[in-house]
């Protein structure tokens, strides 16, 4: 068993005519929490979907647990996905099921466990995210942070080896933010999983991750441990970490000359 759960070499991906990712190299060791950061629309969610097998790379190599994702067939993909979890941006809980049934979903779909054992397992997972008491609520009765945690409990139901997080911090208040961040770190450590976090929340993620990749315009702009990133003098990273308005990422969308647009051109 290789030490690297995910190995990406020279990965490119085109969507329609657009080259979304060009030549990505990324490695995730088992037991690590990896953050993929970048401004909106830089291709980081696409990267996550490629790892999850929702899309196939155009060229290059993408290996998850030694399996080449570009050549995987549907059955093998579904087998692999049983060992993967994904946390969607807003939880994506099944709105027609209670919290309990949401967490029990995969157990019921993929195992023949008796209902009493499913019950115990669901309560264990819900307890891990601190929501055992909310098991009979419906998703519409949960706050944003709570549904994110329920979704987390749901994605760890089958004790996966890998969890992918798509913007786990989006739209959360500072308390929920800290709670979610700590949960990701703690679950990764206690369950021996590997976590890939796609986010643009620099401060929260730098506190908990092992390694950071910065993606911009479809290429990896910078990478390093949180300490290295904080100390980085690269203009893009500096702008991103400190949230400055102008830098390599301009405030203005490319446009003709302002004066010309207003009809003031000489």
């Amino acid at each position: 068993m290789s030490d690297n759960l995910i190995e990406i070499r020279d990965l490119s991906f085109t969507y329609g005519q657009r080259l979304v990712l060009k030549g990505i190299n990324l490695t995730a060791r088992r037991g690590q929490v990896i953050a993929i950061m970048g401004n909106s629309g830089c291709g980081k969610t696409t990267l996550l979907r490629l790892i999850g097998g929702a899309m196939k790379p155009t060229s290059g190599s993408l290996k998850v647990d030694g399996i080449e994702m570009g050549r995987i067939d549907q059955d093998a993909l579904y087998q692999l996905r049983r060992r993967m979890g994904m946390l969607f941006q807003f939880g994506a809980l099944f709105t027609d099921m209670s919290v309990f049934d949401n967490v029990a979903f995969q157990l019921r779909e993929h195992t023949d466990l008796p209902e009493s054992m499913i019950r115990d397992l669901v309560f264990m997972k819900l307890n891990a995210v601190g929501l055992r008491g909310a098991h009979d609520l419906m998703p519409s009765e949960l706050s944003g942070g709570m549904s994110r945690r329920v979704a987390l409990a749901r994605s760890i139901a089958l004790d996966p080896m890998l969890i992918l997080y798509d913007e786990p911090f989006a739209g959360l208040d500072p308390i929920s933010l800290g709670v979610t961040g700590n949960l990701i770190r703690r679950l990764t450590d206690t369950l021996g999983m590997t976590s890939i976090v796609v986010t643009h929340d620099v401060q929260e993620s730098l506190k908990m991750v092992d390694y950071v990749y910065f993606v911009s315009e479809g290429v990896i702009e910078a990478e390093g441990t949180p300490a290295e990133i904080k100390a980085s003098q690269l203009p893009y990273v500096h702008q991103f970490v400190h949230g400055e308005e102008n830098g390599p990422v301009p405030f203005h969308y490319p446009a003709p000359d302002y004066a010309a647009d207003l009809g003031l051109a000489a």
Binding site: A54, R81, F88, A92, F105, Q106, S155
Partner: peptide, 11 residues
């Protein structure tokens, strides 16, 4: 994204 979530859960 409930449909996508289901697909990611191998269902």
């Amino acid at each position: 994204e409930q449909i996508a979530a289901m697909e990611m859960m191998a269902v």
